[in-house]
Design a binder for these strands. Structure first.
Length: 911
DNA sequence: GCTGGCACGTA
DNA sequence: CGTACGTGCCAGCA
């Protein structure tokens, strides 16, 4: 190849305008692999993608900063090269390629193909040689060359027109090596670097140099004698140990120099095939989908990589697809609602919802034919009534990204919505339960390959009414309208996917109706008495100060930060010299379990105070957090999420009301702050008794376990009597608690190690305990074994309602990942089925309360428990209806038992 | 100001 | 080296 090969490329005829970027593919991929966690990047099917991700990011960055017109990525080929024939120990002693790295080179090449970036390999040669050939030739033709490589052999290529970019940290930060920079760092010009390397040797390539000679000595010699031949010619004159060492290792040095010489005469394809701007947007998107890449990296894809025609095609298509956007006022709206919108629409609400109060400003409605963006504040009464009627019409199907949130926001304007057909967040979750929730823009990137460009803060601000600024308002409306259009198409797409995955009924009949029940619970909130929390806080404040003082007194009055694990480590393990226990990533554990062990062993009084301080600090933390969330109506309005917990449980935040202390007497006092509402007489708690073990009995069909639940005997006592072959009356506390630990441990995928640690018994004892259990409850053992095998075969686990959890790691070669997936596979059907059941129960209880006209209402759900406000005169009927609704939510092969308690507050309502 | 690690609350 | 979550603090980073 010569310069004439590229003179035909349009727009790049002048060598001075051409810039070529050369990348060492293997070296950079390997660096990316170690810069990013392998277990943090996966395609969802067990293939690590961290190197692919890092490499792609690197390419994007370098293309942006170097603005090349041509790019070539060079790769090594598996197997040897000519260098191995010169020296059979070349690159020997390297660690084996990590398992997770394998396969990622192929994926990188797929990405490059989609990006239209050329990549080359040459049999019998290394990537270095390809780079050396291209750099030398093109620089000679007057073309600017940038090389990206972490390999030091590339230093020799640096020259007037050749710059080396060396990764500094990871793969995104680069240092520019110019001839001056090389001189400064090594004290010699770039072309002499191989001489220096030959003398010093190269550890990574297993090329030993002259012992006792480092870069400084080598550079000194090179300066003095000109080059390596000069040095060797004068070897006899060099004094001292280094001189003798050189004379003893002349052969090594000569070999090294032959090995590290760049090859610059390879036969390579013409450069015109390497011109930038031939990427295919759709192909890139498809590859990124396969790799499960998120939205961030997609946004950073430099446009210069893409073929202008595909970008134009995409833009043209997007423009054609978008129906006209109108901004109907009060005049036009009623007719629109009865006409084009009568068949339903996709909704996007611009508004807010916090601390139990919602508000909405703009509403975008999209159909296949048209999009309407409505300024809610500007409507007259007639138009507003028409809109209210349309929204409340259950016969008009609607979809939104988050239907519950849309309801909350619109409720702030007195608007109720019925007729929800599709909730994107729920549908997406049912299809991909292990993925983090994402906004509409990210869903559009993921499924429509479109960038809505509405996620930036600036765009959001424009949407805020456009306050008097007509242009901003128009831009806001345009973005809202586009988003609604995307919601409409996403809804269609996701409904099809729900169908494929057998999750349509879960969406339509369970989660979507449930979201409306939860919406009312959130809007209602739970009455919370600040005075109770304030007093608890004051008590704990005093106590906190006391124990802190006492703790410091054991440290010669040294007031360390008791909340700093780092400072505690120093005090406990250095200063007080206590025996070190369990290790953490950053040092030695100071958690409660470790501290309690330490106290047992040493009786050190500081530990007593420290543990007390931990308790009281935690209490104050919880109390403070709760107080911050008490809204103007003296109630706490938590948010329940249906798309967070991969097993199908709800989660609760702002604040989390599913982790209010219950285990200790002191902690439980916090519960007394949650009280019956004004106009109600008490709170009721209703919980399932041992629901997970009942599900285990049902799924395993183990006769013994089923009998246990039908016997009327205490479950753990019954199971223990079987395991230990004694009469139920003879089961003592230790036997019962051991059995209980095994029972629950099984549902979590326990190991003998974990069991022994929890019960503080030997591993042998733990194994014997588990074996004894399985001997009597063989059905459980068979079920557990079969359920993992089935999941391995199908790729997912399933709950009683068919809720799936995909577990690609079940077939991973990585033992840690595989065993983790196996535990998840054991637990998910059990925890998930329990979640299914209480969700069914919530729907049923809600329906029963309506049906019977009760005013009492459900306030909270805590996984196996419901908390309700009891209205005057309804307690007895409520007990019956809740027991019925929860008890008959789903028919298992054992009864579902429900415990109920009633009291003034959540503490008193315990039972 | 953000992030990772730790600790700890619940089922 | 049993599952599923959310929150707050510290420390190190930019």
């Amino acid at each position: 190849m010569s310069a004439s090969d590229i003179t035909d490329v349009p727009g790049t005829t002048d060598p001075e305008e051409r810039r070529i970027l050369l990348i060492d593919g293997h070296a950079m991929a390997f660096r990316a692999f170690f810069a990013l966690p392998a277990d943090g990047f996966s395609d969802g099917r067990g293939q690590a993608t961290n190197a692919v991700y890092g490499f792609t990011r690197m390419i994007f960055n370098v293309v942006q900063s170097e603005r090349p017109t041509h790019v070539v990525v060079a790769f090594d080929l598996p197997g040897g090269t000519f260098r191995d024939r010169i020296y059979d120990q070349y690159k020997a002693g390297r660690d084996e390629t990590p398992q997770e790295f394998k396969g990622q080179i192929g994926l990188i090449q797929q990405v490059l193909d989609a990006l239209g970036v050329a990549w080359h390999t040459v049999p019998d040669y290394e990537a270095d040689d390809i780079i050396a050939t291209l750099a030398t030739r093109n620089a000679a033709e007057g073309i600017e060359v940038s090389i990206v490589s972490s390999d030091r052999d590339a230093i020799q290529l640096v020259g007037e027109r050749v710059t080396l970019l060396q990764p500094v940290k990871g793969v995104t930060e680069m240092k520019r090596m110019t001839p001056a920079a090389v001189e400064e760092k090594y004290g010699i010009p770039p072309e002499r670097y191989p001489d220096l390397a030959a003398l010093v040797g190269e550890q990574a390539d297993n090329l030993p140099g002259v012992p006792g000679v480092g870069p400084k000595t080598a550079a000194k010699w090179i300066v003095q004698y000109g080059d390596l031949p000069g040095i060797l010619a004068h070897a006899e004159e060099i004094k001292g140990k280094a001189g003798q060492s050189l004379r003893d290792h002349v052969e090594d040095v000569e070999r090294n120099r032959r090995m590290n010489a760049a090859v610059t005469d390879l036969d390579l394809p013409p450069l015109e095939g390497c011109v930038l701007g031939r990427g295919d947007a759709a192909a890139v998107s498809a590859v990124f989908d396969e790799l499960a890449f998120g939205p961030t990296i997609r946004k950073d894809l430099p446009a210069v990589l893409l073929d202008a025609s595909t970008a134009e095609d995409a833009a043209a298509e997007a423009a054609r697809e978008l129906p006209p956007i109108s901004r109907p006022g009060s005049e036009e709206l009623p007719a629109l609602l009865e006409g084009e919108l009568a068949g339903g629409a996709a909704l996007v609400v611009e508004g807010r919802w916090e601390l139990g109060e919602g508000d909405a400003h703009q509403l975008a409605l999209a159909t296949e034919e048209s999009i309407a963006v409505i300024d809610l504040a500007g409507l007259d009464d007639t138009a507003e009534r028409a809109l209210a009627a349309w929204l409340a019409d259950a016969g008009i199907p609607k979809s939104a990204h988050d239907t519950k949130l849309a309801n909350h926001q619109l409720a702030g304007r007195g608007l109720e919505v019925a007729g929800w057909a599709t909730d994107l967040a729920i549908a997406e979750f049912l299809c991909r339960p292990d993925q983090r929730p994402v906004d509409v823009a990210a869903l559009a990137l993921r499924h429509l390959q479109e960038d809505l460009q509405v996620t930036t803060a600036a765009a959001q601000q424009e949407l805020d009414l456009g306050a008097g600024d007509e242009d901003a308002a128009a831009r806001g409306a345009e973005q809202l309208g586009r988003t609604a259009d995307a919601v409409r198409r996403l809804a269609e797409l996701l409904r099809a996917e729900l169908e494929e995955r057998g999750a349509t009924s879960l969406h339509d009949d369970l989660e979507l109706p449930l979201s409306q029940v939860i919406r009312v619970m959130e809007a209602t909130g739970i009455a919370t008495e600040d005075a109770v929390l304030a007093e608890l806080d004051a008590e704990h404040e005093t106590r906190q100060a006391e124990v802190a003082e006492s703790a410091f007194s054991h440290l010669d009055g040294d007031r360390i930060n008791l909340g700093s694990p780092k400072q505690l480590q120093e005090v406990l393990y250095e200063r007080l010299g206590l025996p070190k226990g369990r290790r953490t990533k950053t040092g030695y554990s100071t958690n409660a379990e470790t501290l309690a062990d330490l106290l047992d062993k040493t009786q050190h009084p500081f530990l007593v105070d420290l543990l007390a301080h931990r308790d009281v600090t935690k209490m104050r933390q919880i109390i403070d957090t709760l107080r911050r969330f008490i809204a103007a109506d003296s109630r706490i309005h938590t948010t329940f999420h249906q798309n967070i917990a991969a097993t199908g449980r709800l989660s609760s935040n702002n604040p989390n009301l599913q982790n209010i202390p219950a285990r200790t007497e002191e902690g439980r006092r916090i519960r007394s702050a949650f009280r019956r509402s004004d106009g109600y007489v008490s709170l009721m708690t209703a919980d399932y008794s041992q629901i997970e073990m009942r599900i285990m009995a049902h799924l395993s069909e183990d006769e013994g376990l089923i009998e246990a639940f039908n016997s009327g005997e205490d479950l753990h006592r019954f199971v223990a009597s079987r395991v230990f072959s004694v009469e139920p009356e003879e089961v003592d506390g230790a036997m019962r608690s051991k059995t209980k630990a095994v029972s629950y441990g099984l549902a979590y995928g326990l190991s003998a190690f974990g069991l022994s640690r929890q019960l503080r018994i030997s591993q042998g004892e733990a194994t014997a305990l588990r074996d004894g259990y399985f001997e009597r409850f063989g059905g459980v053992r068979d079920y557990l074994r079969e359920s993992v095998e089935k999941a391995r075969a199908t790729g997912y686990t399933e709950t009683i309602l068919g809720r799936r959890r995909y577990l690609p790691d079940l077939t991973s070669d990585n033992r840690q990942r595989r065993e983790n997936a196996e535990r998840v596979a054991l637990n998910s059907p059990i925890q998930g089925s329990a979640a299914d059941i209480i969700k069914l129960a919530m729907l049923r209880v809600d329906a029963l309360l309506r049906e019977h006209g009760l005013t009492s209402r459900v306030l909270l759900q805590v996984h196996d428990e419901l908390v309700l406000d009891v209205a005057e005169g309804e307690e007895q009927r409520l007990r019956e209806l809740v027991a019925e609704g929860m008890g008959s939510a789903y028919t298992l092969s054992v009864p579902l038992e429900v415990g109920i308690g009633v009291g003034e507050d959540w503490l008193a309502a315990a039972h």
